[in-house]
Amino acid sequence: MPKTEEVLFATEDQIDEYTDQSPEVQTEKYLIFSSDGLMYGIKAEQVKDIITDYSITYLPQVPSYVKGVINLRGQIIPMVDIRLRLGKMPQDNFCGIVVDVDGNMVGILVDMVEQMVDVPLASILPVPTSSTNQAMVSGMCTLPDGHTMLELDCELLLHD
């Protein structure tokens, strides 16, 4: 028994050391991408893949913003054009981000993938007005380089 206790205490001490070292601020990794001049961020843990080389198979009878499906290593994944989804002008995009939303894999077509950033959770601010165009944005945050990141709510992107 005493041995176990020792080990137990040692672990707790270590944990304390860790927390002492790192700053108290909790951060979350975000993948930043651009679409129609705006910067959007998706939680990195939701991102499964970034793809550029694929061919989209057209699917009939779906809204125009669903460009079709792709074959990603044997998985069938729908591709959503975020420009069309947000009511913007379409543009030929090839860059796709595959995200996992509640177990559903969905590809999002974006203009360009920019970078990964650590964003302090506290710095994510609520969206001031909920106008229809920003309906899929769940928070905003100013990045170190001065740009403003709009946090994309992937669930809202899929379900109206």
Binding site: Q61, V66, P78, V106
Partner: peptide, 13 residues
């Protein structure tokens, strides 16, 4: 088909 696609009722087509 992915659930997301099925939610548009493509089965009916």
């Amino acid at each position: 088909l992915p659930n997301y696609i099925n939610s548009f009722g493509v089965k009916n087509y």
